[in-house]
């Protein structure tokens, strides 16, 4: 069977499998909404019936009204795009450096002994502690924010990359050696597929931290972005705006994580993962 035929057959099998599972999948997907919706309704009811004070704990209706107004004025889109752009830039910067340094440290014992202790030391510093320094060095505008986010994304990805390389089984590598793969072929055909699952997990962890650090970055002075909405909401006493921003963070975080998962899924279909059902 040629590689193309192989691919087609694979694809067919995959599609057939997916179709069979689809209706059930769709229902499963709804399960995730049960808790939040029940909670929101209960909250709404509690405020309506006067059980709790709505001023500091605005009910979902007020939060969504705020979101709606922000969306109508175009502000919401602006804040979302500014924050997302910051996360994207910081994440990209952090991931690229972490991947390169992690790969280097994984490939060479010398590089590892040289770099790893220092990085482990830096990792022990709570990253927010860098904020004042970054402001002094890079100013209060975009640069310092992006670098802070990059620092946040860096460590999980670096650790993931290094750990994944170090845990590649010698026995698997020997399979490549016995078939006389060149070093580039060994990397492409054995090492990359072997480290990919752990690497994807570390990317997800890094992205999560990216969303966390963008808030810290926007706290240190920003006139746009979801973090700014938080600060602004606090200063003007608008809890519904704070909750609206938090809600948007949750949605964006979930969507971007989902995109990572979806993007990597075709590369990981072979995995024999523990996936409890029912």
């Amino acid at each position: 069977m040629t590689a193309i035929e192989t691919n087609i057959a694979e694809e067919k099998a995959r599609i057939a499998g997916a179709e069979k599972r689809l209706p059930q999948r769709r229902l499963r997907f709804l399960l995730g909404f049960v808790l939040p919706v029940v909670f929101a309704l209960a909250w709404e009811a509690a405020v309506r019936f006067g059980l709790v004070q709505g001023r500091l704990m605005p009910p979902p209706s007020r939060i969504f009204a705020t979101l709606y107004q922000l969306a109508l004025s175009g502000e919401l889109l602006l804040h979302i795009s500014v924050t997302t752009a910051r996360v994207a830039a910081g994440f990209a910067l952090g991931v690229v450096t972490a991947t390169l340094i992690g790969a280097l440290a994984g490939a060479s014992k010398l590089a590892r002994d040289l770099v790893d202790p220092a990085l482990q030391g830096l990792r022990a510093v709570p990253s927010i502690a860098w904020v004042p320094l970054f402001i002094l060095w890079f100013g209060i505008y975009e640069q310092s924010k992006i670098i802070l986010i990059a620092v946040g994304c860096f460590f999980p990805v670096y650790l993931g990359m290094l750990g994944a390389i170090l845990s590649v089984d010698r026995k698997t590598v020997e399979v490549g050696r016995i078939f006389r793969l060149s070093t580039p072929a060994l990397v492409r055909r054995i090492l990359l597929p072997a480290i990919l699952p752990a690497y994807v997990v570390s990317l997800r962890a890094g992205l999560g931290l990216g969303w966390m650090f963008v808030v810290a970055a926007e706290f240190m002075g920003a006139s746009e972005g979801l973090g700014y909405l938080l600060v602004d909401g606090q200063q003007l006493g608008k809890p519904e705006q704070i909750l609206a921003a938090i809600f948007v963070f949750a949605v964006l975080g979930k969507i971007t994580d989902g995109l990572l998962v979806v993007a990597s899924a075709p590369l990981l279909t072979w995995q024999d993962a523990f996936a409890p059902r029912g």
Partner: peptide
């Protein structure tokens, strides 16, 4: 010279056919 290890050592990210073709690239 071919070698069969004590364990199968198949590459889990390749199908059976791709595993068998591994040394034929």
């Amino acid at each position: 010279v071919g070698l069969v290890f004590q364990e199968p050592r198949l590459l889990p990210w390749l199908t059976v056919a791709q595993n068998i073709g591994f040394g034929l690239s």
